[in-house]
Design a binder for these strands. Structure first.
Lengths: 67, 67
DNA sequence: CATGAATATCCCCTAAAGGGTATAATCCAC
DNA sequence: GTGGATTATACCCTTTAGGGGATATTCATG
């Protein structure tokens, strides 16, 4: 499970949304939300950010914080 | 110019690499490196991380830090 | 100025991302 | 247990990301 997947899953719960809610509000497909939460790595960056925007977040480059 | 684009450009300079060097060392295409440094937003996350790994970095979700 | 290196732009092609939808599997509360 | 909601898997289809390569263009440096 990737860090991103965990992040989205948790934030979604915190916001009290279902996957369907999130996909509709963010404007990405339901399938995308699922693949995102399941840790698919080949996702498109803009779509990921589109979802993260719902939580006031975004993807940013950062030094790898060890294990 | 996106934050990511700036980050890569700067790190690449710091490491004394050309775009060609970086593309070869990271294993992505030269065109990808260019689009990355030019702020294309529809890049694939795994490829971006593949490049960032050269600098010991990765993409992570984070609260949007204002303007 | 000339010359070469680095970067940018354009074309073609293939693999696959992402949307939709339908069906299964889980997870509740009752 | 049953029923409804939520999540997971699987399929088809269209669009496009990304690779390679060719051709500008820009930027150094002598």
């Amino acid at each position: 499970m990737t860090q991103l997947a965990k992040y989205v899953k948790e934030m979604r719960k915190q916001f009290g949304l279902t996957q369907v809610d999130l996909s509709q509000k963010s404007g990405v497909g339901l399938r995308f939300v699922r693949e995102l939460e399941q840790g698919k790595t080949t996702l498109r960056l803009d779509k990921v950010n589109q979802v993260l925007a719902m939580f006031g977040a975004e993807m940013t480059p950062a030094k790898i914080t060890e294990v």
